[in-house]
Design a protein around this nucleic acid. Sequence first.
DNA 1: CATAAGTCAACCAATTTACTAGGGTATGGT
DNA 2: ACCATACCCTAGTAAATTGGTTGACTTATG
Lengths: 150, 150
Amino acid sequence: MKLSTRSRYGLKAVIDLAVRYGTGPVSLPTLAGEQGVSEGYLEQLLRELKKGGVVDTVRGAQGGYELTCDPGDLSVQRVLTLLEGSTAVVDCVGSEEQGCNNACTCSARPLFLKLQNRINEVLEKTTIQELADDYISQIKQGCCVKNVCK
Amino acid sequence: MKLSTRSRYGLKAVIDLAVRYGTGPVSLPTLAGEQGVSEGYLEQLLRELKKGGVVDTVRGAQGGYELTCDPGDLSVQRVLTLLEGSTAVVDCVGSEEQGCNNACTCSARPLFLKLQNRINEVLEKTTIQELADDYISQIKQGCCVKNVCK
DNA sequence: CATAAGTCAACCAATTTACTAGGGTATGGT
DNA sequence: ACCATACCCTAGTAAATTGGTTGACTTATG
C-alpha cells in the first residue's frame, strides 16, 4: 500500500513549482537541493511529468522547469498517476480495468471498489494549489526549516 | 499503492473461513484449492494471521484453520495490517508514527493525512462478515464458478 | 503405526525500486 | 567563439521486495 519515493519526491517537486508559479523556470539543482534528492533521480521524475504534460522545460542557461497550467487546475491524481503509473490498489479496479474475469465472484472485490472510490475522491478533489497554500502558511509560521523528508 | 498478493490471498482466505464459521476447521489444501494458490505460500500467510490471533489451528487429521472470533467483530483493517505489516501509505502517517522530524513543513503531509484517514475509515468500518455476506449472495445468483483471481 | 494435517526454516528467481554515471544537446552571457 | 549552465537520454546496478518452492519436523486421528 506504500507510495513510492518517486511519488513523494515528484509530488513535492510539483508543489515547489506551484509555490513559484509565474516567476519563471526553476532549475533542477534548485529543486533537488531543496529536497535533498540527487539531481539525476529527480530529473527522471520530472521527465515523466513533462511527458505527461504537467511541466514544461526551458533549456540552456537560466532554464529550468515550470508548471504548464495553473496549480488550481492540477489535481494530485494526475500527478501521482504519471509518477506511479496508476493509483489503483488492485489492477482489477483500475481505470484500465485489466481483465479479471472472475470479478463477479471475487469475494474481496466489493471492498476494493469502495476503497478505490474513497482514494480517488481525495486524489481527484485535492489540487496542487491547495497543498501549495497550506505549505506557504506553514512556512510563514516558521516552525522548521527544510522540506526534506525521506 | 498496490496491495500485495499476500494481502489479497490472505484476505480472501479469511473471507472463506468466515463463510464456514462455526462448522469446524478448514484444511489448508481446501483453502488453497479454492483460490488456486499453492499450499506452501498460503500457509505462510495463515501463519501470520495465527500469530496475530485472527485464526486458530487444529493439528492432525481433520484439523485445519478457523477464525478465533465472530466475523462480524473482525475488521478488514486488522487482517490487512497483519498481512501487509501496516496499511500506511507513507511511514510518517502510520499508527507507529515513525519519526519524520520535518512533519510540520512537509508540503505533502496534509494530503497524506487526509488520504490515510479515508483509507482507515473504509478498512476499519468494513467487517469480514459484510464481505462474506456479499460473497454468499453473489454465489447464490450463480454467475460464475470460482474465486480465483490473481 | 500409518496417514492427514499443521509448523517452521531456508532457499530461490524475478521484478521493482531507488538510485548513479556519463555522454549528449541547447541557450545565454561575455 | 567559447564556456558555463541547464535540460535530455540511456544504461547499469545494488538492495529490497515479491511470490513463491522445498523439505524436514511435529502432532493428532483412526
